[in-house]
Design a protein around this nucleic acid. Structure first.
Length: 599
RNA sequence: GCCAACGUGGCUCAGUGGUAGAGCACUCGAUUCGUAAUCGAGCGGUCACGGGUUCAAAUCCCGUCGUUGGCUCCA
């Protein structure tokens, strides 16, 4: 264990001291900013997981260069050892004092506060409306245990239609050692970044000529993708899913019926229309942002009997969403992606049971992928928003169905209000990437709305026409995002079954090439993805190249191995294992592949 | 979409007003080699793109495109 691994990085929620330190830093920064930029108006400045930020309204945006100046000013303030004092005042008093300073945002904040109103003073130099708590004096802040990290635009009250403020992010710790350790871990995390590893491992790329957010998959990346697809397809066959294939575009009308055109068109690529007239009459085609309306057409193709339900239609359907340019990033947020989609058409009686089966499948998939760090979110609608379709009654019913499911399973979960799809609530599975950002992967949704909008029916046992309920579900969420997360989770070191190149054979000299070739063919026949290193480099170089390419199993072939019909195996995790007979190597490869484990 | 930073051979990066550089990769030659880099030579860039300032621009200014960190929004 290195020395730095002994340094504990406390979390804000486990250390009140740290909370006070960070909160005080944000005020010291605000004071520094107002000294340097007298026109800057203060707003809010909370602590965060790694530090703090403060939002300002300033006539000119801050640049990275300003951060250095602000940091210096902060250090000056810290070294002055100013006392920090709390003062309780009446609402009226607070209002007068804030108005005197000309701080409109603070006045707005004051309106939402309950008495007693508290002010915090940094000596007699500066004060801010704040609930606290803070450290007793600026000396309690270590001038070498913080840093200003970045500037960003941020909307007042998080609302796009309100003023854009300037946010300055900082990181702050109790000791300089903790700051260094934090920075070191950040550097480590960057090495796991799927964008960096994806390039190094040659899995996917983006081309400026193709367009932003539109990934292209190399042969290696495609092997990874299809391995994942094949795996899920097998699991679905075991569970009675039926495969379908549908087009990438459809008439606007289809999406009017579904409600996408009304509630989702901002996220859709613009309509393609043959003539201006067609365009004016909305008679064109659009790229599909979701697969559901297409699967619904297949359901509707025949009059369905209750005996056919549940009907589970599955497709790896590639969808296109016009994400705002600033939101794109690597594989986790793209404009064209493949959903491991399925739509289940069920009778109301079957709903609970089918929903549980879907959750069971999703959890089984995560288990096979060795993904453990996720949270389950009940994504419900925001009753005050108009971005949803359907009646209150139907929403109540579908949200309750999801609640029942997590309760039956005893699954830990949290609620996300306003996180529902426009047509129904979801149970989402949230993962975290190397840099700590959260992403939704698997999802399953209960939907009474689309069956109604498309007037779906089945004939019940008593001969009456009934309306089915739909379950939308995608265990991966999307192949792109899943692979992004997998790359980071494994740090590029895929388990054998997922590795694009599973075995690399390295002949010590050219003399062993024919034997290597023969072994390779033997392995290929069994479905092993194997390559022979024909570079003619020295063994040390070949090993280095294989290690850098993160090949799970390396096999050295010299004169001894040819003689004994064996391979000297080196694995990434265990190093040199010595000579093993070709037959045994193949047996062990098969075992590792079948168990989704390592060699 | 908004705010900021960045964009130099395939990759990683140096060069901040005066004739485009390095390492790796690639090609060729020599070496036939035992578990993370053999030696040598060669090829390769109108410095993202378009405009402007200047005797002179990779370098300064403006615009566009792209990438990154945030905000808003989402698989």
């Amino acid at each position: 264990m290195t020395e730095s691994e002994n340094i504990h990085l406390p979390k804000t929620d486990e250390s009140d001291d740290l909370k006070r330190i960070r909160h005080t830093f944000s005020h010291v920064m605000a004071m520094a900013v107002q000294r340097l930029f007298p026109k800057a108006q203060v707003t809010i400045g909370p602590w965060t997981e790694y530090g703090f930020y403060y939002d300002f309204d300033n006539p000119d945006p801050f640049s990275d260069k300003d951060l250095k100046t602000i940091k210096k000013e902060m250090i000056k303030i810290i070294k002055k050892d100013y006392a920090i004092e709390r003062e309780e005042v009446s609402r009226e008093d607070a209002k007068k004092r804030i108005a005197a300073l000309g701080e409109p945002y603070k006045l707005e904040i004051l309106e939402g506060l309950e008495e007693p109103i508290t002010l915090y003073h940094i000596a007699d130099q500066w004060w801010d409306l704040c609930a606290g708590p803070h450290v007793e004096s600026t000396r309690k802040l270590h001038p070498k245990a913080f840093d200003l990290e970045s500037v960003a635009g941020a909307y007042w009250r998080g609302d796009e239609t309100k003023a854009q403020l300037q946010r300055i992010y900082g990181t702050a710790w109790e000791t300089p050692e903790q700051l260094q350790e934090y920075k070191r871990r950040r550097e480590e995390a960057k090495k796991r970044d799927h964008r960096k590893l994806g390039k190094e491992l040659g899995l996917f790329l983006f081309s400026e000529d193709v367009g932003p957010g539109l990934p292209l998959w190399t042969p290696k990346g495609t092997l990874l993708r299809s391995t994942l697809e094949d795996f899920l397809k097998q699991e679905q066959v075991k569970r009675g899913y039926l495969p379908v294939v549908t087009p990438h575009i459809a008439k606007v009308d289809l999406f009017k019926t579904s409600g996408h055109w009304q509630k989702y068109s901002e996220d859709m690529f613009p309509m393609m229309a043959e003539t201006e007239e067609a365009k004016a009459n909305e008679m064109g085609f659009v790229m599909k942002p979701m697969n559901c309306p297409f699967h619904i057409q297949i359901y509707k193709d025949e009059l369905r009997s209750y005996k056919e339900l549940p009907m589970r239609l599955a497709e790896f359907g590639t969808v296109y969403r016009y994400e705002q340019s600033g939101e794109l990033g690597g594989l986790t947020r793209v404009r064209g992606f493949t959903v491991d989609d399925a739509h289940l058409f069920v009778t109301p009686d079957q709903l609970d049971d089918e929903f549980l089966k879907v959750v069971d499948l999703i959890l089984a998939v995560f288990n096979s992928l060795k993904l453990k760090n996720f949270k389950a979110r009940l994504s419900f609608r925001d009753p005050d928003s108009d971005k949803y379709i359907g009646s209150d009654d139907v929403w109540e019913k579908s949200q309750n169905a999801i609640r029942r499911a997590v309760e039956t399973l005893g699954m830990e979960h949290f609620e996300g209000i306003g996180e529902a799809a426009f047509y129904g609530p979801k149970l989402d599975f949230i993962f975290t990437d190397a840099l700590g950002r959260e992403w939704q992967l698997g999802t399953t949704q209960v939907d009474y709305n689309l069956p109604e909008r498309f007037d779906l029916e089945y004939v019940a046992a008593d001969g009456t026409r009934q309306r089915p309920v739909m379950i939308h579900r995608a265990p991966f969420g999307s192949l792109e995002r899943l692979i992004g997360i997998l790359i980071e989770e494994y740090a590029g070191l895929f388990p054998l079954w997922l590795a694009p190149e599973q075995v690399r054979l390295m002949p010590v000299t050219a003399e062993q090439l024919p034997f290597a070739q023969q072994v390779a063919e033997q392995m290929q026949l069994l479905g092993v993805r194997v390559m022979v290193d024909r570079s003619g480099e020295r063994l040390g170089k070949m090993v280095r190249n294989s290690e850098k390419a993160k090949i799970p199993v390396m096999a050295v072939i010299g004169a001894k191995e040819v003689e004994g019909n064996s391979l000297s195996i080196r694995t990434r995790q265990d190093g040199d294992l010595g000579a093993i007979s070709v037959a045994d190597v193949i047996t062990r490869l098969k075992e590792a592949l079948d168990s989704h484990g390592y060699f």
